[in-house]
């Protein structure tokens, strides 16, 4: 179980890293295609609020899991 937790830790960390360029690229593409106020507000919320939370939490959580910090948390 611990090995699976650690392997998945790497997955979470990579997901956290990968999400940043993906979201920014998509935002730039959509705003360039239609620079409306609605688009700006939507992507601002995603980039300023949602993305940092997802990226930070996934990366930190992933690194912790990879280092085995969660190995001892088992069901009883």
């Amino acid at each position: 179980m611990s090995a699976i937790k650690r392997i998945f830790g790497l997955v979470w960390a990579l997901l956290g890293v990968g999400i940043v360029p993906l979201v920014i690229k998509q935002a730039m593409k959509e705003i360039a295609a239609k620079p409306s106020e609605e688009n700006w507000i939507f992507w601002s919320i995603v980039i300023v609020v949602l993305m940092p939370i997802i990226a930070f939490s996934l990366i930190t959580f992933g690194v912790f899991a990879l280092k085995g910090e969660y190995d001892t948390l088992e069901d009883v």
Partner: peptide
């Protein structure tokens, strides 16, 4: 770290 890891697990 001990508490932050629990905050993260609670969130995610």
């Amino acid at each position: 770290k001990g508490n932050l890891k629990m905050v993260l697990i609670a969130l995610l």
